[in-house]
Design a protein around this nucleic acid. Structure first.
Lengths: 157, 157
DNA sequence: TTCACCTTCATACTTTAGGGTGATTTTTCT
DNA sequence: AGAAAAATCACCCTAAAGTATGAAGGTGAA
């Protein structure tokens, strides 16, 4: 569907270009006759042609590159989920330590406290302590809320 | 930082354009002298100018519109967090019912099973049953994983 | 109407999560 | 060096989450 629309648009541009060229031919012929009588004004003639066709070239290029611009928008859309900038301001304001953030990250990946403990080479009790601090700082009651809040605050991806 | 780079690029284009124009002036002067001797070839002279300056216009427009493309990327970026389209294909493929999706949604908002039960006017046991089905269908073990997976599959926002 | 599926609920049991408190060891900053 | 903050761990207890199984009413399609 978008391909055929594109094709039509291109054809329209070409048709327009053709019509424009026809009009220009008459204009140039008229200019040629005019300036053949006043034979010294050849530079003005050449300059006119240069300006007109520069403008035409710009117009043409802009017309033809517009569909390309739309395509680029789509590409950016695909690249969307790749970027994450940690909100260090919020991190500092909430007094969340590096270790706590680590725990938070693993928590957001769906790991259990036991799994987090194993991954960080500490005991289950340690993770529980970190959790308690995190919930307090984030002002939440459950890990699911902690993850939700942390994502909204850009503390985790 | 990107602004200054942009400015430099623009300046380079303008400088290049200036140099190009100077070269063209000599070329045109030469062409003019040539075709003044063979006085009938004026159309060829005009045509040459037209072609050259059309090409110049196209080149110019392409050079100058490149920074515009970057601006468009930024615009798309801003519009990013506003849209969510439910992935009904995945929903159908996993056989997740409307009610289960409701539970999943509330679960993702950090609500406890008891809170979900109250919100949906059913008992805690019902929610537990829904959860069990959900975990099975999503092939996960915990609610945090369920939420993570569901977000990746665009089942919830 | 029968069959499959959804939704609802229950009971019993296990596991995980979370709260409260206290303590020790590192790090870090002054 | 000494205070403050961070990280570590333990114990006990409660709450919430999750598992397993069974059951019953409702709906829609074959």
């Amino acid at each position: 569907m978008p391909g055929s629309t594109n094709f039509l648009t291109k054809n329209k541009s070409i048709i327009l270009y053709g019509v424009f060229l026809a009009v220009l031919l008459f204009l140039l012929k008229w200019l040629e006759l005019r300036f053949l009588i006043i034979n010294h004004a050849l530079e003005i003639y050449a300059g006119s042609i240069a300006i007109i066709f520069t403008a035409l070239g710009i117009w043409l290029a802009l017309k033809l590159t517009k569909p390309k611009t739309i395509l680029i928008e789509k590409e950016v859309f695909i690249e969307q989920p790749e970027n994450f900038i940690l909100n260090e301001t919020a991190l500092a304001k909430l007094n969340i330590s590096k270790r706590e953030l680590e725990v938070l990250k693993l928590m957001s990946e769906g790991l259990s406290n036991q799994e987090i403990a194993e991954q960080l080479f500490v005991t289950l009790n340690t993770i529980k302590t970190h959790n308690a601090r995190l919930f307090e700082k984030l002002e939440v009651k459950r890990r699911t809320q902690a993850v939700e809040t942390a994502k909204k605050l850009n503390l985790i991806a």
